[in-house]
Computed example of a mutant assay.
Amino acid sequence: MREMRPAAARVAPAPDRGRRAVLCAGAALAGWAVTARASAPDARLRERRALMGTQVDIAVQGADSVLLRVAVDAAFARMAALEAVMSHYAPTSRVAAINLAAGIQPVPVPRELLDVLHMAAGVSRRSSGAFDATIGSVGRWDFDPQAPRRPSDAYIREHLGSVDWRQLVLDDRAGSAYLRRRGMRLDLGGIAKLYILQQGLDTLRAHGVRTALVNGGGDVVATTAPQASAWRVGIRDPRSPARLLASLDLREGFVASSGDYERFFLRDGRRYHHVLDPRTGYPTDGPRGVTLVGRELQAVNGLGAAAMVLGTAQGRELIRGSEGVQGLVAFATGELWVSRGLREQLRPAGTQAG
């Protein structure tokens, strides 16, 4: 999946009654200041590891510190195994095998990858192709400012016709995936990460953890036990990345981000960022960023990137028309649009993001 390099993160104490820990992490759009407040003296564990080209943080609390350690290790192992299946950079991944066999034959894939590919097809249908996992067909981009890489204009023109999500054939009975045209390539960077984070959270639950948060490059999934306080998630302002725009309390579900300011490089006077438009093969030139909040993975996954591709009016309507999803869109003009439901959840935030 597409490489992501967030800003540095920190764990630091914050003033409050009782015990509190604050976790701030950079992201494509948002820095998430995550606060866990316990009413009982439960054990707590926070750990960070490199996964999916970014830093993934897990924060858990529970009565048994040994159980928490086992659960966190199992969750990281589960996420690493799924990354090995879904990365288009790894030559041994199933995604790489699908790309290699494009136009030749279907490739057997595990159930988890089929689930992600079905999600990709679903958001492609909902957005009329504004999200398209076959965007990898126009070549590999690298947004590391120290060693940026972009396909040539000629390569993009030559391969843009191969960007077509409808040419991906999924066979649930055979457990296979097939790209119809030779030269087509999948890039699941816009849809696999949130699924993998959810699988990490599900692993924690399977080990008996009832209060947990998994944060990967600004995409957050969380759960809380009935007696525990909600997680506090702070949203970084894409117009001024050092500032927290607002915060919200999250008991169950997702906060997902897409944006243009964290991963980019400058070349020949132009700014290139990581959200690519399937219609052109180049970075989008619409909103600066999108934040989505929802309880269901399938409702929010991939929707932010699609909204950025669609632009101001259509992107806003896509969010409005998505059941169970609330959103915030930051426009290039500096304006903000916030859905009514999300506006009611947000709290002002005057603190600096770390």
Score class of each variant (00 low, 15 high):
2 R>Y: 03
4 M>S: 13
4 M>T: 12
8 A>Q: 13
10 R>A: 09
13 P>A: 06
15 P>Y: 10
25 A>D: 09
31 G>W: 03
33 A>S: 11
33 A>V: 01
49 R>M: 10
54 T>P: 11
66 V>S: 14
68 L>R: 12
69 R>L: 05
76 F>N: 04
80 A>G: 09
87 S>A: 06
88 H>Q: 00
91 P>N: 02
97 A>V: 02
99 N>I: 12
101 A>Q: 08
104 I>E: 04
105 Q>P: 01
109 V>C: 10
111 R>V: 12
117 L>P: 07
118 H>Q: 13
127 S>E: 12
128 S>T: 14
134 T>R: 01
136 G>H: 07
142 D>C: 10
143 F>S: 00
146 Q>L: 08
150 R>I: 03
153 D>N: 10
154 A>Q: 15
159 H>E: 00
159 H>G: 01
169 V>C: 04
169 V>F: 07
172 D>T: 13
174 A>L: 11
178 Y>A: 14
179 L>Y: 05
183 G>T: 05
187 D>I: 00
187 D>P: 11
195 Y>H: 15
204 L>H: 02
207 H>M: 09
210 R>M: 08
211 T>G: 04
212 A>F: 00
216 G>Q: 01
217 G>R: 02
218 G>Q: 02
220 V>Q: 07
224 T>P: 05
228 A>R: 14
231 W>I: 01
232 R>T: 11
232 R>I: 03
235 I>H: 00
236 R>S: 08
238 P>I: 11
240 S>W: 07
252 E>W: 00
258 S>M: 03
259 G>R: 03
265 F>E: 01
271 R>I: 06
273 H>R: 08
276 L>T: 01
278 P>R: 11
280 T>E: 00
285 D>R: 15
287 P>R: 09
292 L>K: 12
292 L>P: 09
293 V>S: 04
294 G>Q: 03
308 M>E: 13
310 L>C: 12
310 L>R: 15
320 R>W: 04
328 L>P: 03
331 F>G: 10
331 F>Q: 15
332 A>S: 13
333 T>F: 04
338 V>L: 10
345 Q>P: 07
347 R>D: 10
347 R>V: 06
348 P>D: 07
348 P>S: 09
